[in-house]
Design a protein around this nucleic acid. Structure first.
Lengths: 339, 339
DNA sequence: TTGAAAGCGCTACCAG
DNA sequence: CTGGTAGCGCTTTCAA
């Protein structure tokens, strides 16, 4: 309730001086500065964010748009962003833009246009053209996490590399009949799924296993992976010896399905994922680790740099995933020596 | 970029009239109203949230504080809140107040004090005294989701009832040696854990099974449930015939542990949970359903009512969970006729 | 080093 | 029904 005017009065100075003393900008004698600070503390003064925003043009607030918050990856990125902002005293306003909903349309048409933020982080948005056009209108720095964009800075894991590496790991173990599970033709996360699928395809092709390439579509969720794998594995005649999941959730779903079908992992079936999901350890899942929390933090750094220095060249951060071998993968037949 | 002054000029009216025409408050002739609206549309006018906030004292923004965003329950509540706010054109700023962190302290000391919102929703916060004191200082309506509070309105499932019902279900199936899994002495979510534990204890006691009461502590996560159950079940001499999980994540962890130990569910072990988690179906988990998304929506309704009508009496919504019987529970010995 | 005053963009009161 | 004007709470020239 106490405004800067009261603080100023209390300290016996003008509003202008009080403002300088509190914000640290401009010349103020040490004596008056501490007097003002004391007054502010005593009155429990807290500046009005709205007024500061109006006067400075800086909202001290960052917008975050993502299609889901209840998926591991997104939740982790969000936490990373939140932590980084917290340390810097910035607020975060969240826009949950679920694909294909009316709410998403409103976010792009109304909410984002309000520009209640100094910059925006778009996580796995995969905007369609119309939405992209809205985004460019915003006239505030934007950083994308996941995906690719010519217009914004990007922070992401190298998806192609991750899937390739997972596949190579299985090939090195002697597998030939390796299927790729996850991703649907018109999944929203099309880009990532596609990159990973193609990483798998490349690895297979390079190893001369092009004829074994198989893609079992599924929703990119744990139950989705479960269903797809249950389907794929129940056909005993054409059962692959190894699976690459488009992400850990799908891979874990596949492991659960295998267990229910009585198929031993890894002796009868090897499964590799991508992510290092919080459940990966529990399922002894071999995976390619990415740390979404760090991606969130990195996105904040990049964004703040762009806010501080308008016109800065865009940044593109591609982070290589790291292979973590646990015990969901094992050799088949005589094991070849590894890569 | 276009301000209301330009819109006014474009439409040949004063700023005041333009404001009324756009906000719909006060008398404006239909003719001028549509003229102003046309001008606004043409110029792509979007009001400055900060300025509106300053002038009206309403930020059109709701704050949400929660200790985690990456747990099923919290993520679901968050989505419910977000949806409800979206429909009403309100923004949401998120504060991720992880217990015991420095960030949490900052949120309570600095961020919330900024009062950048018209009202606050606290999800599973369980504030300690010092924090509670901060909260009361905020002087904005607050609604709690989960937990209990004398000071704020509350929206929550009836935890005692849910656990009691789960336990009764198992008792009705003929089980006597039923253990409760989950919750640690100083878990952050102490209140909920405690309520559920005591629901279990009551049901056991009322059925004359007090001597069978057993509580296996664990972290309230899927891996936590896995670890605790693995421990509990590996002692073959004292193995219970049924388990009540403090929540579905723990219950599912227990099922996974049981399967790994070769214990058939439900023939050798019945498991019941509380939540109806997104994975419940996949594990055929019998559970007491709550719908956190709806709790989020309800919290928004209550909060907006309190914002609209200051001094309104506090609301307390206790929602009874609904028993969903799947196939993780079954009778032991001759099945008694059910409750 | 400090103070006075002019806005930031909008709403709301009060005349007309 | 409409326009002028005074703020909302803060920052920021510009003089002193």
């Amino acid at each position: 309730m106490a405004g800067i005017a009261e603080v100023a009065a209390h300290a016996g100075v003008s509003k202008a001086t009080a403002s300088r003393a509190l914000s640290g900008a401009g010349y103020v004698s040490e004596a008056t500065k501490s007097r003002v600070q004391a007054a502010a503390a005593e009155l429990g003064y807290v500046p009005s964010a709205g007024a500061v925003g109006l006067a400075t043009g800086r909202t001290q607030n960052i917008g975050v748009v993502m299609p889901y918050v209840n998926r591991w990856f997104f939740a982790e990125v969000l936490e990373g962003i939140q932590q980084a902002l917290l340390e810097r005293g910035l607020d975060l306003t969240l826009y949950d833009a679920k694909p294909g909903t009316e709410g998403r349309a409103r976010i792009f048409d109304d909410f984002l246009a309000r520009k209640r933020f100094d910059g925006l982080i778009a996580v796995g948005l995969e905007p369609v053209d119309h939405e992209l056009e809205r985004l460019t209108r915003i006239d505030r720095p934007i950083v994308s996490v996941v995906g690719s964009s010519e217009l914004t800075s990007v922070v992401a894991v190298d998806d192609d590399y991750a899937a390739r590496r997972a596949t190579e790991h299985l090939i090195a173990l002697g597998h030939r009949d390796i299927a790729f599970v996850g991703g649907a033709p018109q999944s929203h996360w099309a880009h990532v799924d596609q990159e990973r699928l193609s990483g798998y395809q490349h690895a297979m092709t390079e190893a001369g296993l092009a004829s074994f390439i198989r893609h079992a579509h599924s929703e990119v969720t744990l139950p989705g992976g479960y269903a797809a794998a249950a389907d794929l594995l129940s056909d005993t005649r054409r059962r692959p010896t190894a699976l690459v999941g488009v992400c850990d959730e799908v891979a874990i779903g596949a492991i659960i399905a295998a267990r229910r079908l009585g198929i031993q992992v890894p002796s009868a079936l090897s499964v590799a994922g991508i992510d290092d999901h919080e459940f990966a350890e529990m399922f002894s899942l071999t995976t390619l680790q990415q740390v979404p929390r760090e991606q969130g933090r990195a996105a904040v750094s990049v964004l703040l740099a762009e806010i501080a220095e308008p016109g800065r060249a865009r940044t593109e951060l591609r982070i290589p995933a790291r292979l973590i071998v646990r015990s969901s993968t094992a050799g088949i037949a005589p094991v070849e020596s590894g890569v």
